[in-house]
Amino acid sequence: MLFPAARAGLERKGAAPVVIRYFKKEIEELRAWETRAAQLEKAIRGKIARHETVTKNVNILHGERLTLGERMADRMADIAGSWGFISFFALFLAFWIGLNSLQLLFRPWDHYPYILLNLILSCLAAIQAPVIMMSQNRQEAKDRLRSEHDYEVNLKAELEIHELHEKLDHLREKQWEELLGIQEQQLDLLQKQLELLQGMEAEKGKG
Rank of each mutant, 00 (worst) to 15 (best):
S147P: 02
M200C: 08
P113C: 03
A5E: 12
L61D: 02
R71S: 00
A37P: 05
L10T: 01
Q103R: 13
F89V: 04
F95M: 03
E166R: 05
E52D: 07
T55Y: 09
N118W: 07
T35A: 11
G14V: 13
Q185I: 05
W96Q: 01
E184I: 03
Q183S: 14
L105Y: 09
L68D: 12
V18A: 15
G98C: 05
I86L: 12
A125W: 00
N57C: 09
A126C: 08
D169F: 01
V19H: 14
Q193N: 10
K206N: 09
I182P: 02
L179V: 01
A90I: 00
D188H: 00
L30C: 07
L171P: 02
L187T: 09
W96G: 02
F3A: 07
A38L: 04
G199I: 03
E11G: 08
L2H: 14
T67V: 06
L121D: 08
Y22V: 11
M72D: 07
P17N: 08
I27F: 12
L99M: 11
L104H: 08
Q185K: 10
R107N: 14
I44Q: 04
T67D: 10
N57I: 05
G14Q: 15
Y112E: 06
A126T: 05
I48Y: 15
E203I: 06
D143E: 10
V18Q: 13
A129K: 01
D143L: 11
L124E: 01
G205H: 08
E41H: 11
N154R: 12
T55V: 15
I132E: 02
A6W: 00
